[in-house]
C-alpha cells in the first residue's frame, strides 16, 4: 500500500514541477502528458514493431550467449588444468566494456540486428561464464568421486551431477546477463541505429518530440522491470527443488 504513495508522489511531482514553471515545459513535460503520449504510442503498429525488434535482439543474443557460456564453462570447469590455463584470459577479457566493440559492430554489420547481437552476446557471455565456473567449482568432490566409482559416463555425470549442482549459480548468471543484455540491446539501437526501441528514442530526440522521448524511456523502464520479474520467476520455477527456494516458500 505504502509503495503506491511513492509512485503517486513521483507522478505528482513530475506533474507539478513543469506546471508551476520550475522547469521549462519544453524540457520536462507534465507527467499526464507523458502518459498520454505513451498511451497514444501504444496503439501504433510502429511502436510494437520496434519493441519486437528490441526483444528479438535481446532474446536471441541472450540465448546464444547463455548456451555458449554454459558449454564453455562446463568444459573449462571439468577438464583438469583448463581452468588455471584460461584464468588470465577470462579475467582480462571479462572487464572489457562491450561498448568498445561498437565501432567494430558498425563496420561489420552496419545498423542491423547483427550489431545488436554482437554487443549483447559479448556482454552477457561473461556474466554467465563466470557463474558457471563458480558453480562447477562448487560441486561436491565426494559426489563426483562416488559417481565415478559407480562407473557413470562423463556425460551422465555432467547431466545428473554437475548441471543440477551448478544450476543455482547458472540461474544467477542468467539473471545478471538478462539485465545486461537488455541494456546493450537498447544501446546498440541508440548509438548504431539498429532498428528497435533505442532507435525510436533517438529519432524522437532529434526531431524534438520531447514528450515522446520521455514516454519511450518510461516504456523502456517498464520492460526492464518486466525482464527482471520474468527472469526471477523463471529462476524460482527452475530451482523449486533447491533448498534455498524451498526455505523461502516455507517462511
Amino acid at each position: 500500500m505504502r509503495s503506491l504513495y511513492g509512485v503517486a508522489g513521483l507522478l505528482l511531482l513530475m506533474e507539478a514541477v513543469p506546471r508551476l514553471g520550475l522547469v521549462d515545459e519544453r524540457f520536462l513535460p507534465p507527467a499526464s502528458e507523458i502518459l498520454r503520449t505513451l498511451g497514444g504510442q501504444l496503439v501504433t503498429a510502429g511502436l510494437w514493431a520496434a519493441l519486437g525488434e528490441t526483444l528479438l535482439g535481446w532474446a536471441l543474443g541472450l540465448g546464444i550467449a547463455f548456451c555458449a557460456a554454459v558449454a564453455a564453462g562446463m568444459v573449462i570447469g571439468t577438464v583438469p588444468g583448463l581452468r588455471a590455463a584460461t584464468n588470465s584470459t577470462v579475467e582480462f577479457l571479462r572487464p572489457i566494456p562491450s561498448v568498445a566493440l561498437i565501432p567494430l559492430a558498425t563496420l561489420l554489420f552496419g545498423a542491423s540486428l547483427g550489431s545488436t547481437l554482437l554487443l549483447v552476446v559479448y556482454a552477457s557471455f561473461w556474466q554467465v561464464l563466470i557463474q558457471v565456473l563458480y558453480g562447477v567449482a562448487a560441486v561436491d568432490p565426494v559426489a563426483v568421486d562416488t559417481a565415478r566409482s559407480y562407473g557413470f559416463s562423463s556425460w551422465t555425470r555432467m547431466r545428473r551431477l554437475v548441471w543440477p549442482s551448478a544450476l543455482p549459480y547458472i540461474m544467477t548468471g542468467l539473471r545478471l546477463a538478462a539485465a545486461v543484455a537488455f541494456i546493450l540491446a537498447i544501446t546498440a539501437e541508440l548509438v548504431i541505429g539498429s532498428p528497435g526501441l533505442g532507435l525510436e528514442i533517438q529519432i524522437a530526440q532529434s526531431s524534438g518530440a520531447v514528450a515522446q522521448v520521455y514516454a519511450l524511456i518510461v516504456l523502456a523502464g517498464l520492460i526492464g522491470i518486466a525482464v527482471n520479474v520474468g527472469v526471477r520467476t523463471l529462476e524460482r520455477r527452475v530451482l523449486s527443488w533447491h533448498q534455498s527456494v524451498r526455505r523461502e516458500v516455507a517462511a
Binding site: R2, I186, I201, I217
Partner: peptide, 26 residues
C-alpha cells in the same frame, strides 16, 4: 523505504544509455 522502493526499482530498470538523449536536452 516502503514508499521509495518501487520508484527506485523503476529507475534502476531503465537502461542507463537512454538517459543520454534526455540529459542532452538539459
Amino acid at each position: 523505504r516502503a514508499a521509495a522502493e518501487p520508484v527506485l526499482e523503476f529507475f534502476r530498470a531503465v537502461p542507463p544509455p537512454v538517459l543520454v538523449p534526455l540529459i542532452m536536452l538539459f
